[in-house]
Computed example of a mutant assay.
Amino acid sequence: MLKKNDLISFEENIKKIYEAGKIKAPIHLSGNNEEQLIKIFKKIKKKDWVFSTWRNHYHALLKGIPKEWLKKEIIAGRSMGINNIKYKFYSSAIVGGILPIALGVAQSIKLKKQKSMVWVFIGDMTFETGTFHECYKFSKNFNLPIKFIIEDNNMSTNSPTNKVWKKKSKVPNDVLKYSYKRKYPHHGTGGWVLF
């Protein structure tokens, strides 16, 4: 299992490559949530599926995707959509876009009577969407092998979630949620000013 410093070093290296102009597409860097993810990934098995968002580098690494392969994908401009069938890893830059796909995989696992699980990482703003609530309800009604994890940094791109919704929805007991302060802006490596 990778350690906190391994994850941080990887993202710092990607940051340097990006700032040197060698990545010709947006990047979405992770940071300040290493410990929470390491703890969660101790429960995720090799045979399980992981679905993630555009901020997926840590998830990919912790799922076992080799650093060299991931780095090549990011340099090739695919930071926001890392996908690797061998490691059962899928991500999407579309807000809420991974939810119905993950749900379908969970239903397939159940129909085939397999023993694997689906783990879906979403942001706090995606949690507030109708897509999440419909997928969650379907997964509960049909007892699907799926676990939802909310990564709450109180931001949707650059909009504070609590200001957009005024009151956040209640998180169901069987949904994991952790809060953290993002280290990097929505994309890139600099800082954004919030007005």
Rank of each mutant, 00 (worst) to 15 (best):
Lys115Ile: 14
Met117Phe: 15
Val95Gln: 09
Ile74His: 08
Thr131His: 06
Ala106Gln: 10
Tyr90Lys: 10
Ala60Trp: 03
Tyr58Val: 02
Lys42Phe: 11
Asn83Trp: 05
Ser79Cys: 04
Thr157Ser: 13
Glu134Ser: 14
Thr161Met: 01
Phe132Tyr: 14
Asn141Ala: 11
Ser116Asn: 14
Phe148Pro: 01
Thr129Val: 04
Lys88Gly: 11
Ala60Lys: 02
Ala102Ser: 15
Lys46Asn: 12
Asn162Lys: 14
Gly123Pro: 07
Leu70Tyr: 00
Lys71Ala: 01
Thr126Cys: 06
Glu34Asp: 08
Thr129Lys: 07
Phe132Ala: 06
Cys135Leu: 04
Leu62Cys: 06
Leu62Pro: 01
Ile65Gln: 03
Leu29Met: 07
Leu144His: 10
Met155Ile: 13
Ile149Tyr: 12
Trp54Asn: 05
Lys170Asn: 12
Gly64Glu: 05
Trp49Thr: 00
Tyr87Thr: 04
Thr157Met: 11
Ile38Ser: 05
Asn153Trp: 00
Lys39His: 11
Ile146Leu: 12
Ile94Arg: 12
Glu151Ile: 05
Tyr87Phe: 13
Glu134Tyr: 10
Tyr58Thr: 01
Lys170His: 11
Ile75Lys: 03
Leu70Val: 01
Tyr90Ile: 15
Asp152Ala: 04
Tyr136Leu: 03
Ile149His: 06
Leu29Trp: 03
Lys140Ala: 02
Ser156Ala: 11
Lys42Thr: 12
Tyr87Gly: 05
Ile27Thr: 03
Arg55Gln: 14
Asn153Cys: 06
Arg78Asn: 15
Ile40His: 03
Lys45Asn: 14
Asn33Phe: 01
Phe127Pro: 09
Lys170Ile: 11
Asn33His: 12
Ile101Lys: 10
Gly123Asn: 08
Ser91Cys: 12
Ser92Gly: 06
Lys71His: 02
Val118Trp: 14
His28Tyr: 14
Trp54Ala: 07
Thr126Val: 14
Lys42Ser: 15
Asn141Gln: 14
Ile40Lys: 00
Gln36Met: 12
Ser116Arg: 07
Phe138Glu: 05
Leu61Asp: 02
Ser30Pro: 00
Gly104Gln: 07
Lys110Tyr: 13
Lys166Met: 08
Arg78His: 12
Lys113Phe: 08
Lys167Trp: 10
Arg78Gln: 10
Glu35Ile: 08
Asn141Glu: 13
Glu128Ile: 09
Ile74Lys: 10
Phe142Arg: 09
Lys42Asn: 14
Val105Ser: 06
Asn141Thr: 02
Glu151Asn: 02
Trp54Ile: 03
Phe89Asp: 04
Thr161Gly: 04
Tyr90Leu: 15
Pro66Tyr: 01
Ile94Val: 15
Phe89Glu: 04
Val120Arg: 02
Ile101Asn: 05
Lys113Gly: 07
Phe89Gly: 05
Gly77Trp: 02
Lys63Tyr: 08
Trp119Gly: 06
Lys112Phe: 09
Ser156Thr: 08
Lys47Arg: 11
Pro66Ser: 04
Gln107Met: 15
Ile150Tyr: 13
Ser116Gln: 14
Phe148Cys: 00
Leu70His: 02
Lys72Pro: 01
Ser91Asn: 09
Gln114Phe: 15
Ala60Glu: 03
Ser79Phe: 00
Ala106Gly: 11
Ser169Asn: 15
Pro160Ala: 09
Val105Thr: 06
